[in-house]
Amino acid sequence: MPEPITLALVGGAILTEGVRFLYDQAGELLRQRRERTSEPSDDVTHRIELPQDTFDGQLTEPSVDGQRLTEATPVLRAAWAGAAPYAQGIDPVTPDDPASLAAVDQLRLALEAVVGQRITFRGEARERSGVRAVQRIDELDGDAVGIDAGSIQGRAESEQDIRKAKGTVTGIRAERIGP
């Protein structure tokens, strides 16, 4: 379920900078996906490091999984296109405009699907960036893993919303949990 209501609590300047950042990241990922000639499961060279003045927390693994990118490309492309007027400064992003908040949220959710972690704006009432994986898939024909980590320190959550699944769904796979 989209969460634009949590974005309404974020200041306009943070939303404006945040949508520009997310739009640029999504565009770079889409370019790399198009240019990549290797297997879709290969990692993408792009790493996402969230600006601390705009986002709360940091991604724990800022590199992008190629398989997730391949699966999320149609949704990412649509969200990127929908956020274009706001990211390019054609229309303002304001906390009292539901259309702008929905566009920012859709772009954020699409990137979350690619990185498998939350991306949270500074001042937003939700989990910090990097601590939770959310997957929303209509049809799955294969395997899906919410969080796949060598070790997890602190709190980690994984949520899968899969309509039809032919394969294996794993919430969290970790070699070690705890210090």
Results as ranks from 00 to 15, higher is better:
A72W: 02
A79H: 04
D138G: 11
D148V: 09
A144E: 09
L101P: 05
T120I: 06
R34Q: 12
F21Y: 11
R36C: 12
E61D: 13
V104P: 02
D56H: 14
V134H: 05
R33I: 04
V75Q: 07
Q25D: 05
D91S: 15
G27M: 05
S100G: 14
P92H: 07
E35H: 11
D56C: 14
G150V: 12
E127K: 05
G89Q: 03
H46T: 12
I152H: 03
G123W: 05
A81G: 08
V104S: 01
V145P: 00
R108E: 00
V75Y: 08
I147P: 03
I137Y: 05
G142E: 02
V145W: 11
T60M: 10
A81M: 06
A113S: 13
R77N: 10
T73F: 08
V64K: 00
P95N: 08
D56Q: 12
A87W: 01
Q67K: 06
L29G: 02
T54A: 13
G123F: 10
L29A: 06
A103M: 06
R122C: 13
E49V: 15
Q117D: 09
Q153G: 15
E61Y: 12
P74V: 05
R31K: 11
G142W: 03
L50Q: 02
A102R: 05
V104F: 15
G130E: 00
R132K: 04
L69S: 00
D56A: 15
V134I: 09
R126M: 11
R20A: 15
L22E: 03
H46L: 14
R136M: 07
F121D: 01
L107R: 01
S38A: 15
L107N: 02
A113N: 07
R20H: 11
